[in-house]
Every structure is written in C-alpha cells, then in structure tokens.
C-alpha cells in the first residue's frame, strides 16, 4: 500500500486478518485443507428405507405433528380427511401443485402474489416438499413449483405438507448432499410447528409460524 489515503474498512479488516494469520491468501491451499478436514461422523443411512420412514413418523409425532401414509391414488381422500379433522376450509396452494391431488369440498386459492394480509386470512397452506430428514423429523421446502415462496408456509396458521417417500433420508448429511445442487434457492427447514421455550423452558407450540403441522407421506 503506497497511498497515504486511509484504508477502507474492507481493506483494513482484510489486512488485519492477513497479519493475524501471518500468511497471504492462497485459495488452492485453503481448498485442499478443506478437503482434508476430518469427517468421521455418520454420513450415510444405517437403516432400511422402511425403518427410515418409521423413524420420520416417530420424530414428527414427537413434535405433535399428525402423520398419515397414503398411496398416491388415495391422496385427495387423505388430504380431505386431514383437513376435516382440523376443521380447515380455506387454503392457499403454491403454483405447480398437481391439481388432481386436491379434494373437492375445500377452497384452494392459488398463490397469485397474495399480500401478507391476504395470507393471514386463509386457514392454512398445502405444499409439497423437497425432502425430509428422519433423524430430526424435518421437512425441507424450497422455492420451486409445488412448494412456493417462503411466506406461504409461514403466515397461515396450519401447514399440511406432502412428502414423497423417495425424498426421505435418514441423516442431515444425506439431506445436505441432496440440497447442494439447489443450495442457493430460498430454503426452509421445518421441524414441527412453530414453538418456543422462552418461558421457564416450557415448550409451547405455536408462536408466530403455523401452530399446526401435519404431514402426509406418499408411499
């Protein structure tokens, strides 16, 4: 640096880091060092797929989510049963959700740039999902057809989420590997309904996100 003008914050911070680390930036070294990091934790499935599905259902139950298994052909009937059990009438659905899945007798509003206030006035939302993680009872949603933008699964008070059994993995590392190609999409991991334990560490379901989450596993 030959100029006497004061360094920008950016330059000053990066310079201080380089002095602290006592080496010039070297991307190649960083890359190879990263590849050599130890990863001796579990990274693959240890259970048969059916057991993985059972585990997912079990972990979702832990979060008080209802879980139903359904064949694709029975999907409309089972969606109707789920919604009726929760007394849900009006739902928003993202673009790209197959219309043949939707049962008659309910009002499904497509998400056509609804305002947040409009989203706040429907009973619930029905979405598909990108994948699910059995060990943690997590469903993962991304902004793709059938799942939609993030606000959809957030503002309405009820979320019914459809999971294809082929999309269920056992572990978090398997999930991240599957998400890697679409890593820059808006992505939400949902593990049970919105909750807090801020008051005396008592877990309370439902604060700001959906208070009720149900899952239909398409087998």
């Amino acid at each position: 640096m030959t100029t006497s003008s004061p360094l920008s914050a950016r330059a000053e911070i990066l310079q201080k880091i380089r002095i602290a680390n006592a080496h010039a930036p070297d991307t190649a070294i960083a890359q190879s060092a990263w590849s050599d990091l130890p990863r001796d934790y579990k990274r693959t499935s240890t259970l048969a797929h059916n057991a993985v599905l059972d585990l997912l259902a079990d972990r979702l139950h832990d979060y008080d989510a209802q879980v139903l298994r359904s064949a694709l052909a029975d999907l409309p009937r089972n969606i109707a049963a789920m919604l009726s059990a929760r007394s849900i009438q009006r739902l928003v659905v993202p673009a790209g959700l197959p219309p043949e899945w939707l049962p008659p007798g309910f009002i499904f509003t497509p998400d056509d740039s609804l305002s947040s206030a409009e989203l706040d006035r429907v009973d619930g939302v029905l979405t598909a999902s990108t994948l699910a993680i059995a060990e943690t009872g997590t469903v993962v949603l991304q902004n793709v057809p059938g799942q939609g933008r993030r606000a959809l699964s957030l503002v309405p008070d009820y979320h019914l989420c459809l999971v294809q059994s082929a999309d269920v993995v056992q572990t978090v590392p398997e999930a991240m590997a599957r998400l890697q190609p679409t890593a820059t999409l808006p992505t939400t991991f949902v593990s049970g309904p919105s909750a807090t334990a801020d008051i005396e560490m008592t877990r309370i379901k439902g604060v700001h996100g959906p208070r009720f989450l149900d899952v239909i596993l398409i087998v």
Binding site: Y41, V172, M176, A177, A183, T188, F189
Partner: peptide, 28 residues
C-alpha cells in the same frame, strides 16, 4: 454449504436440546 451438515447437528442439540430447531432459513 456442506459444512452446515455438521453445524446443523451440533447447534440445535447444544443450544435448546432439540434434534433440530423448528425453523432453519437459508437464502442467497
């Protein structure tokens, strides 16, 4: 991105004693 596979296991279990916290948001 792959490093999240470690952090998203360590953090929720250590912080709130949950297998996963209810929501993780990722955006770019």
């Amino acid at each position: 991105f792959q490093d999240l596979e470690v952090m998203l296991q360590l953090l929720p279990r250590s912080a709130t004693g949950e297998r996963m916290n209810p929501y993780n948001s990722l955006w770019t």
